[in-house]
């Protein structure tokens, strides 16, 4: 049952490491990003305003933003990897060869994103390890299980949105509005670089429409404050479950329609 997903994962891994320079360059990018935010935190971290705003997460800006930038990678990959990978296979010309095999299209679409998620997990781990070893981020109180639960629900919620986004690509080939709107809005109001408490009230209320707000809150509370299934983390996890329950069936319906439409048009393999 897992042989086909594993074959797709292995293929994507082999393709990725065939571009060795790019593979290692990405880790260099993480290092520079971490260093840059470290100096930003040196500049503003002592400010009482910053410390008050972040008291919920322990008051340290660098720890706050490190988790924000690390885990927002899952937002990008969840939203973008399905459509990017479909488009990539279409452009390489390999989509048709896969579609003519007795492998179900959902298996191809979902499995094609495994490598992106696996690689993102590795990137996130590198962010956290760099932060802990070289920049003194304190994870001693971390409660990993609720953080993992939040991460899993986040991946499901973002992936559902990503599958809807991929459905647009199947029909319109380019110009996917879903990923763009959610990605930019989530970065603006989701609490990646600053806490949502500093936003004006009207903008803050928008924050609660995006799963990233709950995901980052739960992960920060669990990793930095060791809050297990506290009421705050529990509220975040409940919100993520509701998001997933709403978006997952919608994404399946939309993708089913998109596949039928693309097969009717004969454009499933084209870009």
């Amino acid at each position: 049952m897992l042989r086909k997903p594993m074959a797709l994962l292995k293929k994507d891994f082999l393709l990725e490491i065939s571009y060795r320079f790019s593979f290692f360059l990405q880790f260099g990018g993480i290092f520079f990003s971490v260093v840059m935010f470290y100096f930003v935190s040196v500049l503003i971290g002592e400010s009482p305003t910053v410390q008050n705003s972040l008291s919920r997460y322990g008051g340290d800006y660098f720890s706050f933003v490190l988790i924000g930038i690390a885990f927002s990678n899952f937002l990008s990959v969840g939203l973008g990897s399905f459509s990017t990978n479909i488009r990539g296979e279409q452009m390489m010309g390999t989509m048709e060869a896969m579609l003519v095999t007795p492998t179900r299209l959902p298996t191809i679409i979902i499995s094609s994103s495994q490598w992106s998620f696996a690689f993102t997990s590795l990137r996130v781990a590198v962010y956290l390890i760099l932060g802990a070893i070289f920049f003194g981020v304190d994870f001693s109180k971390a409660d990993v299980l609720p953080a993992l639960a939040a991460l899993l629900l986040t991946v499901i919620a973002f992936s559902s949105l990503g599958i809807i986004s991929a459905s647009f690509i199947m029909i319109f080939k380019r110009g996917d509005p879903i990923a763009w709107v959610i990605s930019t809005s989530s970065t603006l109001v989701g609490g990646v670089y600053y806490p949502i408490s500093i936003l004006p009230d009207w903008l803050q209320s928008f924050s609660y429409l995006f799963p990233i707000t709950y995901a980052l809150d739960a992960i920060r509370l669990a990793l930095l404050q060791g809050e297990g299934y506290s009421s705050a983390v529990g509220r975040d996890l409940t919100a993520l479950i509701i998001f997933s329950l709403v978006t997952l069936p919608i994404s399946l319906l939309v993708s089913r329609y998109a596949v039928a439409r693309a097969k009717k048009d004969g454009s499933l393999a084209y870009y």
Binding site: L15, T94, A97
Partner: peptide
């Protein structure tokens, strides 16, 4: 272009054999 050009012929066949 229906094959993965950066993989060997053998790796391509292994992949499609699984599919």
């Amino acid at each position: 272009r229906s094959f993965y050009w950066r993989l060997s012929g053998l790796r391509n066949l292994e992949f499609f054999a699984t599919l």
